[in-house]
Design a protein around this nucleic acid. Structure first.
Lengths: 346, 346
DNA sequence: TGCTAGGTTGACAACGTTGTCATCCCCGGG
DNA sequence: CCCGGGGATGACAACGTTGTCAACCTAGCA
């Protein structure tokens, strides 16, 4: 590593096509043609331009280019996530990036953290930068404000949660079905008293999952018991406390279903604390990292964020390629991963 | 959700300042002044412009703006990561986003997956979009190619791994020191035969960590034993196999140090498989999600990606604000988190 | 030889915005 | 009453690029 101040030498403005043209002895338009690999430039001029580009370290200015271009495309898309650092979200992000990569498209991403205000601000900021398309995991419950973007020709795909008051492509997990299969799994092991831990009911997916729980109880002819349900839990600690509370009631549940990642962890911790993690069954929704290293391993209904991201990106790019057919709604199935905690009998 | 094709109504081009100006009966320049909240516009015109903006759903075009603007700032920065979906990377990403948010700056992020080619391509793509600054977790070992960007006035901060042949701000984990403290911890519990599992030696941090291991052995007067070392491991499975192999040698180590996240998990799995996870000590570098739920919990030297991201963003924005002082090199300490696996005596 | 078709090349305008500067108007002071 | 100054407003050019179109050149054919 050499020593010195970060900008050794003076700050020199980036060279433009004008300068490249001057050095190569051609017109700017010819430089533009070479840069964009348009046909119809003689080998002679082409190589002169290329060496001038090399010599000046010219970097194409995509900003100016997309401003002038007929289609106005910026080769950039926006991805709006709940929280970038969530394993689920970052996996989704990664899957989108992977497909974008093959098209030379970059990804602008941001977190909402359940703030509706932030959702509008972030999308406005993305629109200001004229992204070509949007993948949105929404926090708000009214997306009519997006009609403007839609009319401006910006395609958008909703992931994980559906849009409200707006028709658009969606890629969703089969939430209710996933929970129902999880409950069925527990019932098949002989459970009848199954507790439920749920996230904020304002989150669409959380509401759908709880719905699935209720539906499956009815389907199984199990009477509902409000004392077995704890909703609007946020984070591991709340879930742990709620679980401890739930288990102190008489008669306690013989199994638990946790409607979300962090709640599953909280519930597991509570069971461990009470020393009954080998006695009370537990199934969680959404996979838990390292769930298989635990003893017992945590049984989950796993979502497939990579598949969701891939599907969302595919839909988005299809729209960018001009597809105008009616909105598509993809449902990605959950997968039961039995690791032990869900296979405990009462 | 309403029914219909995604673009109900025709695709209508976005309104421009020209149209806003026409509707408000003022000049474009006045619209520009209002949009940018420049002083010196009468309340009368200001409100006429604002209602025209409202009526037309005008969205400022930051692309055109930054093209014309004197400073040429795009209010966008680039973040180059090893793999976006890694918990470490996504935490770092998030911390940067958090600070960027307060300045109205958006983040373009991408993954390298250890590809030097990809590093150059991605950074070129970011430079094309005229990002205001870069945070880079590099894969390559020669960054002299970045001198062009540097000269063009793009500040850059390297995180997690240092640049080569280029002087720039850095934010690094104290790798060697972290490993040395981890080894010392094992020694303090009576271990003398300590195995080491390391990632690709081409990765700078991996090399530094191994260095720390060797140094601490010397400092402790423990003779090195090549049979206790397995380097260039990639991923959980390789680490698991290497651990099984390592333990089959006579005499086997009484403790293991794993130089990376996935290797720690692989080693733990191997110990579990052999049923000796309560007999052989294990310390890992970098935290393992849910490491505290395991039995025994996994003892680690934890890095602090959030602090690193924050530091990197602070440095970058300080440069963006005009700071031209010599490069700064921040070192973020690791933290020993004792959870059980590292506190087993031989 | 003359003419045309086709392929190269470049001059110029335009994309949507902001910097510069001129103009205009009003108010206050001489 | 006139003039100067300052604040509000707008006309115009420019940012770096690409679309359009005209000019030019060469080869091929009548």
């Amino acid at each position: 590593m050499t020593k010195g101040v970060p900008d050794e030498g003076q700050t020199r403005a980036r060279p433009t096509m004008r300068e490249v043209a001057a050095l190569a002895g051609v017109s700017v338009k010819t430089v533009s043609r070479v840069i964009n690999a348009e046909p119809g430039v003689s080998a002679e001029l082409s190589s002169r331009v290329n060496s001038a580009v090399e010599r000046l370290d010219y970097r194409h200015n995509l900003t100016a280019s997309s401003l002038r271009r007929a289609d106005g495309k910026s080769a950039t898309i926006g991805v709006v996530l709940e929280y970038i650092a969530n394993p689920f979200d970052s996996m989704l992000h990664r899957a989108i990036e992977d497909l974008a990569l093959t098209r030379g498209v970059l990804v602008l991403a941001g977190s909402l953290e359940e703030s509706e205000t932030r959702e509008r601000e972030l999308i406005a900021a993305l629109a200001s930068r004229r992204v070509d398309g949007l993948v949105i995991m929404p926090a708000s419950h009214d997306h009519s404000y997006l009609l403007t973007e839609r009319r401006a020709g910006t395609p958008m795909v909703f992931v994980d949660r559906p849009p409200a008051f707006l028709d658009a492509d969606t890629v969703l997990t089969d939430n209710a079905d996933g929970v129902r299969r999880g409950i069925r799994h527990l019932v098949s092991y002989g459970h009848r008293r199954i507790g439920y831990l749920g996230d904020l009911q304002t989150i669409t997916t959380a509401a759908l999952r709880y719905q699935g729980y209720l539906e499956e109880l009815v389907a199984q002819g199990i009477p509902g018991d409000e004392r077995l349900t704890r909703l609007n839990l946020r984070g591991t600690e709340r879930a742990e406390a709620a679980t401890l509370d739930l288990l102190s009631k008489q008669p306690p549940p013989t199994a638990l279903f946790a409607g979300q990642n962090l709640l599953t962890i909280g519930a597991y911790q509570a069971l461990r604390r009470l020393g009954i993690h080998h006695k009370i069954a537990l199934v969680g929704f959404d996979d838990v990292p390292l769930g298989d290293l635990l003893e017992p391993g945590i049984t989950v209904m796993a979502q497939d964020p990579a598949a969701m991201g891939r599907a969302a990106a595919e839909l988005l790019f299809r729209r960018l390629d001009g597809d105008r057919s009616p909105s598509v709604h993809r449902v990605i199935a959950t997968r039961l991963i039995a690791r032990g905690s869900g296979e405990i009998r009462p």
